[in-house]
Simulated assay, not measured.
Amino acid sequence: MIYQDPQEMREAQYVSINLHIALIAFFVFIGFVIVMYFTNRFLIKFVFKKIEQPISMLATGVHQISDGNLDYRLTYQEHDEFESVCMGFNKMAEQLKSSMEAIQKSERNRKELLSSISHDLRSPLTSIKAFVEGLLDGVATTSTSQKEYLEIIKQKTDDINSMVSQLFLYSKMDMGNYPTYPEKLAIHQELSDFVLACQEEYKSKGLLLTITNQVDVPCIFADPVQLRSVFANILSNSAKYKKKEFVHVHIFCTKQDDMIQIAFEDDGPGVQEDSLAKLFDVFYREDISRSTPRQGSGLGLAIVAKAIQRMNGKVYAQNREQGGLRIVIEIPEMRQA
């Protein structure tokens, strides 16, 4: 019988237990690694499958926009993290489209502006040249005819000077370089004073002015000089395009919510419906006025629109059912402190 030392037996058992523990730990670790590996593979495949469609949609959208299709929009039905991304893409596309349309409109306006300036300068310059040549060639032989020629030359020169001055004013307003000195104004008093001061002058031009005030001492914050210039340009427009000896212009002042509304209504010829939205464009005039340059440069209402915009208001035109044109100004009411 072999005698074994108890101490050695305990040491052998201890080594055996440690070996079993090490093996178990090793296999547990290997199993854990295997489980993590397959779990990661599954998760990666699942997540990738979930984001594959949105990423593909975004890639398609980017290609469409880069190819010039600014009307392309993403349609995403899920309510997850990509919903906000797709909404942001659509918003970006909409803003890009608006910017491109603004650039294209600006380019069209620039071309129209150059064309209009060329036309409006050519007409009076041609007349001036013809009358100067008439004077030099001795066509005007009497002092009376010579004076008539010189008066026509002066009139055409005044037309050019007026157009250049208005163009300079509009350009400064468009660039934001035109000084403005707004102050608190009682609009009913401003209208009354303006009509009282100018009534006879406009009567001599064929305009009969009346005013109806339907507001209780409202105030606006505006430059009084620019505001009177707005009134004058609107009335000048009515005078230039009237087709009868006298045109009645009724001025209404009312309050609509937080806006003060000033309407100029005449019983003149009105304008074509498709021209209403263009009346406040630079150099816009209906074709009939092209044959009568004395009717103006087409800058008056454009200046009106710029001035009202600087007062945080808006202006628009409508045809009256009874005939004639209605130009409406809306300016925010100044709140009392």
Rank of each mutant, 00 (worst) to 15 (best):
L150C: 03
Q155W: 06
I160M: 07
A186Y: 12
E201W: 01
K184D: 07
D193E: 12
E190N: 11
D159Q: 10
S204T: 14
L150Y: 03
P182Q: 07
S171V: 06
S192K: 08
F194N: 10
Q146F: 05
L191K: 06
K203D: 10
T157V: 04
M173P: 06
P179I: 01
M173R: 14
E190H: 06
F194E: 10
C198G: 12
Y170H: 03
D159C: 02
E148P: 02
Q189G: 07
N177E: 09
Y149I: 11
Q189S: 13
K154R: 14
H188Y: 06
S165H: 11
A197R: 14
I153F: 08
G176F: 04
F194K: 08
S145D: 12
Y149W: 11
E201F: 05
D158V: 05
D158A: 05
S171C: 07
N177K: 06
E183G: 14
E148H: 10
V164Q: 10
E190F: 03
L169P: 00
T180Y: 08
N177Y: 08
I160C: 02
Y178I: 00
G176R: 11
N161V: 03
I187W: 00
H188T: 07
Y149N: 12
H188I: 01
I152V: 04
T157K: 08
K156P: 01
P182C: 08
L169Q: 03
Y181P: 01
T157M: 06
S171M: 11
I187Q: 03
G176A: 04
E148K: 11
V164C: 09
P179Q: 04
E183F: 05
I152P: 00
I152Y: 01
L191D: 03
S162D: 12
G176L: 05
E200Q: 14
E190C: 12
Q166C: 01
K154C: 08
D159V: 02
M175C: 00
S162F: 04
Q189I: 14
N161A: 09
N161F: 05
I153S: 09
Y181S: 08
I187P: 01
F168D: 13
D159R: 04
K154V: 11
M163V: 00
N161G: 01
E148T: 06
S145T: 11
M173L: 15
L150R: 06
L191F: 02
L185F: 12
M175R: 08
S145K: 09
N161D: 11
K184T: 11
C198H: 15
E151L: 13
P182I: 11
N161R: 11
I187Y: 00
I152N: 05
S162Y: 09
Y178F: 10
L191R: 02
D193S: 10
Y181N: 08
A197V: 09
Q146Y: 04
L150F: 03
